[in-house]
Simulated assay, not measured.
Amino acid sequence: MLDYDGDTHLYLQIAAILRGRVAELDSGHPVPSEADIQSEFGVARTTARRAIHVLREEGLIYTVQGEGTFVGAPDAAPREPRKVPLYRQIAQDLQEKIEAGELAPRRPIPAENTLQQQYDVARETVRRAMALLREEGWIYTVQARGSYVSPEESWPRD
């Protein structure tokens, strides 16, 4: 239980709780995401990020961009590398929804926050997926409005 009124910062309290959990896990085991920590402890994303940073600085965990955070050191962890980076998986899922008609042309695609929560990833991972879809012609972005499915004639052809 967190002591919101105590003299110890919340991120340090969360780091202490996570430190105990991590000690019971094998090297290479995934650690809860920032979003999971944020949800579990009812704190801001910055607080969750700072707690993870403490454990990373202590050498208890490591992060692989686009894949997650894991117990141990990167060179000692027997984890299976992803076959497809998460941002590519998100882009592929959205592309399939567009092709299937679940996301209609000139209609908005789900917001960044929605995709972050749905896939339990960082904002940058979602932005990389969106950039890929934009580059390929599946979506376009209107400043201050959001991203939309491109008209069908703009879709890439095989």
Rank of each mutant, 00 (worst) to 15 (best):
T47Y: 04
V149C: 03
A104Q: 15
T141G: 08
G28T: 12
T125R: 08
I90S: 05
I14L: 02
S154A: 04
E152N: 07
D36S: 11
Q95I: 12
Q143I: 08
H53M: 05
R107M: 14
R45Q: 08
P105R: 09
P74T: 03
T125A: 10
F70A: 10
S154I: 02
D158L: 11
R21K: 10
P108R: 15
T46G: 10
G20L: 03
L55C: 00
G6A: 13
A77Q: 15
Y140S: 06
A35I: 14
I90N: 14
M1W: 15
H29A: 15
V71S: 09
I14D: 00
G137V: 10
P151E: 04
P81S: 09
G101N: 14
D158I: 09
T141F: 04
L60V: 00
D158A: 09
P32F: 13
G28I: 05
Q116F: 11
E80F: 12
R79D: 01
A51V: 10
S150G: 00
Q38W: 04
Y62T: 01
R128L: 13
S147M: 03
D26F: 12
F70T: 07
E135F: 09
V149W: 09
Q117R: 15
M1L: 12
A100S: 15
E102N: 06
E34R: 12
V121P: 05
A15R: 00
G59S: 02
